[in-house]
Design a protein around this nucleic acid. Structure first.
Length: 350
DNA sequence: AATCCGGGGAC
DNA sequence: GTCCCAGGATT
């Protein structure tokens, strides 16, 4: 197994030190890096899952202002937590983070644990996030592997294949563990590895001229940087149609909450029926959950997610129904709505 | 091992 | 159009 592609220990120590030194000089000034509380790390790591740093910075600051500690988050209503997450996507992260705060209060006396096993017992905290908190906050020599680390180490050792292949994933965890075990500063090493991937060893046009690890890089040596890792092929998207009717009564809109599983779970929406295929306007009226007096088509657009093309068919409607959750138009920010829901509501109200 | 879960930025 | 992003849970 251990081939010559694994550097010897002296070489590894040099590599780690080069990276730690580089990180000390070039680390970006990010909000969750000041203070270094375990709570800030937990929140930022949850937000950063599959999400780029630039999209998170403002949202992290807002979230921390509203929920400054584990206790305040644990005490919050789910609706408000989801509303703070609105637009970030992958809303199970918010539900899991909220639940994690309650577990920390109930089972860990309000103190975020430092050992990876206990961290991983928290909902939404997997191998990566547990390792990140353990190493970055508590200085433990725990490895972490995210998309950046995977790409950097594969390039460093000229590993062929896709990032997502299990052989490469296992190999990368092993190599990351080996490296973090040789450094004196696991926190700076792990963050440096991710930082390098995000800013220098980027997916498309890496800046090898300014890379602190260029002397160690097998794929640079072999001229293979651009072909590692190989792009993965993705499954085709499936179609989904949503027929959405905006009911307005004075300054209120009728809203409903989505199911607890699946797309946009537990998020809110205007009354909607879903179908895998297009359906006629007659069957819309027949199947609609709210008794319709009449409807008028306003808009239609396609919202694309990773796995679906969702066509939103947008109507304005009227009803005599008084029951249900009629929400103030001026306070829609307090309601967790997906981005396409905000878009269609705006299209009808404007 | 494969699939699902959002949304947007970069190309 | 494509790919990817400080991944995790579920099947």
């Amino acid at each position: 197994m251990s081939r010559c592609s694994f550097g010897d220990r002296a070489s590894d120590r040099h590599l780690c030190q080069s990276l730690v030194d580089w990180f000390g000089l070039f680390a970006r000034d990010l909000p969750w890096r000041s203070g270094r509380s375990a709570y800030a790390a937990l929140v930022s790591e949850a937000m950063l899952q599959q999400t780029q740093v630039s999209r998170v910075v403002d949202r992290f600051n807002q979230f921390m202002k509203r929920f400054p500690d584990v206790e305040s988050l644990a005490a919050a209503e789910q609706m408000e937590v989801l509303a703070m997450w609105q637009g970030l996507g992958y809303y199970s992260r918010a539900r899991n983070l909220h639940q994690a705060a309650r577990v920390i209060m109930d089972r860990f006396e309000g103190v975020i644990p430092s050992c990876p096993e206990q961290l991983q017992s928290l909902p939404g905290v997997g191998r990566y996030t547990a390792g990140a908190i353990a190493s970055i906050v508590f200085d433990r020599p725990e490895p972490i592997v995210d998309g950046n680390v995977q790409r950097v180490l594969m390039r460093l050792h000229a590993r062929r294949g896709e990032q997502s292949g299990s052989a490469n994933i296992n190999w990368t965890w092993k190599r990351a563990a080996e490296l973090v075990g040789t450094t004196d500063d696991p926190a700076a090493f792990n963050e440096g590895l991710m930082e390098l991937g995000a800013t220098v060893c980027s997916r498309n046009s890496p800046s090898c001229d300014s890379c602190p690890l260029a002397d160690h890089c097998r794929s640079l040596e072999a001229g293979m940087v651009d072909s590692i890792p190989r792009p993965r092929k993705r499954a085709a998207r499936t179609a989904l149609h949503q027929y959405c009717v905006v009911f307005r009564r004075r300054d209120k809109l009728l809203l409903q909450q989505r199911a607890g599983k699946g797309l946009w779970a537990n998020m809110w929406e205007v009354p909607t029926i879903e179908s895998r295929t297009r359906i006629s306007s007659e069957s819309i009226v027949d199947r609609f959950p709210v008794p319709l007096v009449d409807i008028e088509r306003i808009d239609r657009f396609v919202h694309r997610t990773t796995h679906r093309d969702v066509t939103f068919h947008v109507y304005r409607g009227s009803t005599r129904q008084r029951s249900g959750h009629w929400h103030d138009i001026g306070h829609l920010d307090e309601v967790p709505l997906s981005n396409p829901q905000r878009r269609l509501i705006a299209a009808v109200l404007d």
